[in-house]
């Protein structure tokens, strides 16, 4: 039994979030909302950490993938769900849930395809160039969305509204748990040792038979997929989305979480996502100081403790040799 601990933990978290979801009416709506934000930020940060932290490909465009996922999922829900319902046996808990899952997957897959498209040409670029290209991609996505027609499916500069509020505690935390499981399992496996190898020394990695291109693309695609899922969750939580909400300052927010948590440390990043999201909520009245504090933190961290606030340790224990 012991060797399946990780799977059991995953299952318990998923069931637990289902339980909390069912009882959600009993909790204070304000705190539930913060909890959902925490979950979405965990997905964003853990997936970005795969790209920026584990693989060392510094991306500043995570919000763009989130945007693609948000738009993909929302458009699917708004345009397709009604047509799907009869096929799924009429509106009911199961049918609605299944349609939502489909919407999320559509958003995630669209984002993954974008991740692949951005990943491919960017592979030749060194750290700082890649950062700018991904930031540029973020801007391109925003500009394209903003210039769509206001009457079309993308909604133009005002974005989309009236997205059904389908996101529940269950969806957010089940996906967050899967995201942590997937990233953690990938990175801690022997195959996954290629990710930090690429980060540490690309030339040495290539000389050890590691297909550096495949690793970078994998990181981008998986990272973008989960960013896309989080976008879909976000859209169906807030019920309105607009291009401006996914500008590169949003990407910076996620980068701040990853850096404070410690690049390459899954546990650290999760804790940072929780702490910073809660902190954000309490600093809401001091919005103008919030970014000021974060920016100073970034600068001081890089000088004093670039590895993040927590010590790095793998969240999933590897099997010890016999």
């Amino acid at each position: 039994m012991k060797r399946y601990t990780t799977q059991i933990v995953l299952l318990v978290v998923v069931l637990l979030s289902l339980g909390i979801s069912v009882l959600s009416g009993k909790f204070d709506a304000y705190y539930m909302d913060i909890a959902l934000n925490v979950g979405i930020n965990i997905i964003l940060a853990v997936s970005l950490n795969l790209v920026n932290g584990h693989t060392g490909q510094f991306s500043l465009g995570h919000a763009a993938f989130m945007a693609v996922g948000a738009y993909g999922a929302s458009i699917f829900t708004l345009e397709m769900s009604a047509r799907l319902m009869p096929m799924l046996g009429g509106p009911g808990v199961f049918a609605t849930g299944f349609a939502f899952l489909l919407a999320l997957l559509v958003g995630g897959l669209c984002a993954a395809v974008c991740g692949w498209l951005v990943g491919m040409p960017s592979l030749r670029l060194r750290g700082d160039y890649l950062a700018i290209v991904t930031l540029g991609f973020n801007e391109i996505v925003r500009v394209i969305l903003q210039n769509t027609s206001g009457d079309g499916v993308f909604g133009g500069p005002l974005g989309l509204k009236g997205i059904p509020p389908l996101t529940t505690f269950f969806w957010v935390f089940a996906i967050a748990a899967i995201c942590v499981y997937v990233v953690g399992s990938m990175v801690s496996s022997t195959y996954g040792r290629g990710f930090p190898a690429v980060r540490d020394d690309e030339i040495a990695a290539g000389s050890m038979g590691i297909n550096t291109v495949r690793y970078k693309v994998t990181a981008f695609v998986v990272g973008s997929f989960f960013a896309g899922l989080s976008g879909g969750l976000y859209a169906h939580l807030r019920t309105t989305i607009s291009p401006e909400g996914f500008n590169f300052l949003k990407s910076f927010d996620v980068v701040v979480i990853v850096i404070l948590g410690g690049m390459g440390s899954t546990a650290g990043v999760i804790i940072a996502a929780i702490v910073l999201t809660v902190l954000n909520e309490f600093l809401r009245d001091f919005e103008q100081y919030r970014m000021l504090v974060f920016s100073i933190l970034l600068i001081v961290m890089m000088i004093v403790r670039p590895q993040g606030l927590l010590p790095s340790f793998p969240i999933l224990n590897r099997k010890k040799s016999a």
Binding site: S185, M186, S188, S189, T190, Y191, G192, R193, G194, P196, A197, R199, D200, D201, A204, A205, M208, G209, I210, N211, T218, G264
Partner: peptide, 25 residues
């Protein structure tokens, strides 16, 4: 690979001999 342990440096070099890809993990 400076951030990896001694063992992981060796494991990283064995990636190409794995029978299964990333999905296996």
């Amino acid at each position: 690979f400076p951030s990896l342990s001694v063992l992981d440096n060796v494991r990283a070099a064995m990636v190409m001999h794995l029978k299964h890809g990333i999905l296996h993990s």
